[in-house]
Design a protein around this nucleic acid. Structure first.
Lengths: 201, 201
DNA sequence: CTATCAATGCGAGACGTATCGTCTTCCCAA
DNA sequence: TTGGGAAGACGATACGTCTCGCATTGATAG
């Protein structure tokens, strides 16, 4: 009845090796070639060690992505969401960074795989959303709230909707590859979300 | 070298049985339980018959979805994209219908599976986009062009961007389940895309 | 304080099952 | 007579479980 393995005795070395192997393999061979046996072999680890700590290969990849995101945050001088007072400029800044991230091979493969897996498996999707996505969205929402308090947005603005109007089209174009993902697109998106597409005059 | 089987001798009976079985199975058991062997068994068909005509189970599902979309179009009195002159109303009408479609169990399972598979497999994704998505997007774009010509949108409006501003957030919320997909959401989205979120005064 | 020892995670890989994609066989219809 | 279809055998691969020693750790006994 080893239902609850003793986490204090867990080998951090193996844990890291598994996460690294998973990221490397998904980048090299794709998600469907990402097999538990391949991860174990690459990491120099017994299969049981993976099965003991993770319920599925998707869960492994999620943890690996969390580690990756954590690294990027600490290393990359991620100073939080900018708030210079110029809402449009701040949003463009962040959306451009997101575009770069989406175009970065290192992040693309695991992000695509997780999004796809989460779309099909609700439980995994919920975890993926809660742990990776929501924290990001919350930053957008906070910045928009600040703008709303500064009187730059209508008092009754639905912040959640606004966030998804920014992130949705970006993610859509990335995921479905309907067109290339560029800085120009990010800029135009911000302008149009702020100003709308209807003719003012 | 049976590279090119003779399509004229193809059994339409088997073809339909395979498509039906694929749709039924993906709805009942999910995409990863959707196996070629299961489809063949369910359809009362030899595996080779599937392998002869389709390169992958995703391709089968794509064809099945195309058939489904075709059915819905002919049966369901799909009168094309409405153009009453009231752009906001027309967009809300269609977006609400899309919400309903996304919430319909019959469409949801295959749509999710295909979107997920296409996100990972570029070739399949391109085919999925071209055959299923683009025709829809073209209708939106045509309606928006009509509005632009009617002077309701700025002359330099990027129609493609506008379409993705409408469809992107909807798809995003559906795929990632960040919040329930309702008619109210569709309405609010249309209003905000047309008017923008920035304070006018 | 040290020497044992039980407990437990780990590396390795054997095991039976499921599905893969190919193939062979016989059958049937054009 | 030709070629697709149904059925299923076939070797390969990955699954998830398991059983081995081995190594580390924390408690117990001298």
């Amino acid at each position: 009845m080893a239902k609850t393995p003793d986490a204090s005795r867990r080998s951090d070395r193996s844990r890291r090796a598994i996460l690294d192997a998973a990221l490397a393999l998904v980048g090299e061979a794709g998600y469907d070639k990402l097999t538990i046996e391949a991860i174990a072999a690459r990491a120099g680890v017994g299969k049981q060690t993976i099965y003991r700590w993770w319920p599925s290969k998707a869960a492994v990849l999620l943890d690996a992505s969390l580690a990756l995101a954590g690294d990027a945050e600490s290393e990359g001088g991620w100073e939080g969401f900018p708030d210079t007072g110029d809402l449009a400029a701040d949003l463009k800044h962040v959306l451009r960074a997101t575009v770069d991230q989406f175009n970065d091979a290192k992040y693309e493969a695991p992000a695509r795989a997780l999004t796809a897996a989460g779309a099909t498996d609700p439980a995994l999707g919920a975890e993926f959303t809660a742990k990776l996505l929501e924290p990001q969205l919350a930053l957008y929402e906070a910045r928009l709230r600040s703008a709303r308090e500064a009187g730059q947005l209508a008092e009754d603005t639905d912040l959640r909707l606004a966030v998804e109007m920014l992130v949705g089209p970006l993610t859509y174009r990335w995921l479905l590859r309907t067109a290339p993902l560029t800085h120009a697109f990010a800029d135009a998106l911000v302008d149009r979300v702020l100003g709308g597409i209807a003719k003012v005059a």
